[in-house]
Design a protein around this nucleic acid. Structure first.
Length: 494
RNA sequence: CGGGGAGUGGCGCAGCCCGGUUAGCGCGCCGCGUUCGGGACGCGGAGGUCGGAGGUUCAAAUCCUCUCUCCCCGACCA
């Protein structure tokens, strides 16, 4: 997020010119976020508190993300299906930890038409409680396993403090649910799907991650183990859990009766996994890559990768420019998502600013000067670099530049993550860093919930994860000083 | 749910304290014309009954009561 603090380079007023009502990214990141979401036309407010209208531009972004993730999920042998929105109260309550964890966030249907329901229905906050009983009906033999199913849907959680994309009453996601004959296989699947998420988020969204395991207190309600990918947001350098994968053990198999006769003739309960990634990752894209001019979308998922802005003065020019634009569009259409901004009520300058706000990676300006030399003026959103490219080279140059931008965004985000992740060896340092919004702190932790709770109460920072990558040597817990086997990542989180 | 702030054309605000003509301003919007290489300009025009309900008064955006919503902070948050 170097862009945020880099304003010093140019004069403040120069930069402000682009910002206008965007809000100051330096000292009011939250407001900046709200404004970007609104002005880039990703989402609009809705009449229902905590919910948003996802506008076409925002939804197109989500669709591109869906496409890429869906492809990866299916490549691991998973099929898509759909389960009902409503879950009978008694079913949701079968797994004790599960219901306890979700109870405060569940929305209930108590009335249908003009009759009160005998049994209230939960609007799914997640679907384990309806999918597992279904699996129980489908499984008799080890030959029926594994079951590998994913669904794209929305779920409802009654959040107290909603934030567009990051935490809303209703949100879009995919949730995968699998059932296996052995714990080992479930574990393998849980880790595999986390890896799918990591690959997707890092390669498509250009967001570097710290993959790891959640602590007991932070894990999914009812899970044996929860794995997570944690990303660092710009601005306040807080963490955002960007995807999660659970090994549910046989807890759900037992309570929902997913029983099968194994190869050796023994009756066994199935082992489950579940894993989800939601459109909160859109929030991550905004906060990780955005700058004082607005969004900066990773080319691989950007709804519009190349925007063409025609420029002319006189009618004669208009004709020539229009012809060139047509030609350029035809050349690029097969290799990129192209949009031609033909609006004639907006000046080129206005359009430049708007498309930058909307994060389009590449802009092509085509005016009389370009037409005369059979070229276009190409401008990168990430570096603001402006250069002429001859029309004949476009089809080769544009894809290459899109790849470069993708790599560049990842590199910049990686640098932010690395520069703001520091290994510390004292609680005092942690307090200081949390106070200063200094980013992630990596430190030894003894594993006790007491230390974890104390830090959370005193600093608001939580253990984001126990990273898979460990030094391999023991150290001392920064809270209690006892011997500790592993390091954890401490940070404040959205 | 606790603390703070705010609701006035689509957006941002002024007016309110010290009630009183047709509720202003900027942006945006519509029409016409000139413009167009980093948020153009002129002329003409449309649009609000002041979050909602009740009350005080000859008279309420303005005072009083209740209520709803949004924002920020806190508590909560797979």
């Amino acid at each position: 997020m170097t862009g945020f603090l880099e304003v010093g380079g140019k004069s403040m007023s120069d930069e402000r010119k682009y910002v206008e009502e965007l809000g100051d990214v330096e000292d009011d990141f939250d407001r900046w976020y709200v404004e970007v979401v609104r002005r880039a036309e990703l989402a609009d407010e809705s009449p229902v508190r905590g919910t948003r209208v996802i506008r076409p531009y925002g939804f197109a972004l989500w669709e591109n993300m869906q496409g890429e993730l869906d492809r990866r999920i299916k490549a691991t042998g998973v099929q898509n299906a759909y389960f009902p929105l409503f879950i009978p109260k008694s079913m949701l309550e079968r797994e004790a930890e599960h219901v306890e964890g979700f109870a405060p966030e569940v929305a209930w249907v108590t009335r249908g038409g003009n009759k009160d329901l005998d049994e209230p229905w939960a609007v799914r906050p997640t679907s384990e409680a309806i999918i597992c009983p279904t699996y129980a009906r489908w499984v008799q033999s080890y030959r029926d396993l594994p079951i590998l199913i994913n669904q794209w849907c929305s779920v409802v959680r009654w959040e107290e403090r909603p934030r567009a994309f990051l935490r809303s009453l209703e949100f879009l996601w995919q949730e995968g649910h699998t059932a296996h004959a052995t714990l080992e296989e479930a574990e393998e699947r849980a880790r595999l799907m986390l890896e799918v998420y990591r690959d997707f988020v890092e390669r498509e969204l250009a967001i570097p991650l710290i993959p790891g395991q959640k602590t007991e207190s932070e894990k999914f309600a009812g899970a044996l183990r929860t794995y997570t990918i944690e990303a660092m947001m710009g601005g306040k350098k807080w963490a955002l859990q960007s995807g999660t994968s659970h090994n549910l053990g046989d807890h759900f198999g037992r309570v929902f009766g997913i029983e099968f006769l194994d190869r050796d003739g023994e009756r066994r309960y199935a082992f489950n996994t579940s894993w989800g990634l939601s459109f909160r990752t859109i929030g991550a894209v905004i906060m990780v890559h955005g700058d004082e001019r607005g969004l900066k979308l990773p080319p691989r998922v950007a709804p519009i990768q190349v925007v063409i802005v025609p420029i002319w003065r006189k009618d004669e020019e208009r004709e020539a420019v229009e012809a060139a634009v047509q030609r350029v569009r035809d050349v690029l259409q097969p290799v990129a998502r192209v949009f031609v901004d033909r609006r004639d009520d907006k000046t080129p300058g206005w359009k430049f600013n708007e498309w930058e706000l909307k994060g389009v990676p590449v802009r092509l300006e085509i005016g009389p000067r370009d037409v005369a030399q059979d070229q276009v003026t190409l401008v990168r959103r990430d570096t603001h670099e402006k250069r002429p490219v001859s029309v004949t080279e476009l089809a080769g140059v544009v894809p290459a530049i899109l790849d470069e931008i993708q790599a560049n965004l990842f590199a910049a985000a990686k640098q932010m993550l690395d520069e703001n992740t520091v290994e510390i060896d004292s609680y005092a340092q942690l307090k200081e860093r949390v106070e200063a919004n200094a980013g992630f702190s990596r430190a030894y932790w003894c594993g006790s919930e007491t230390c974890e709770t104390q830090v959370k109460a005193e600093t608001k920072a939580t253990i984001r994860c126990i990273p898979f990558e460990q030094p391999g040597t023991p150290g001392r817990c920064i809270v209690c000083g006892r011997e500790a086997e592993q390091q954890v990542i401490w940070a404040r989180a959205y």
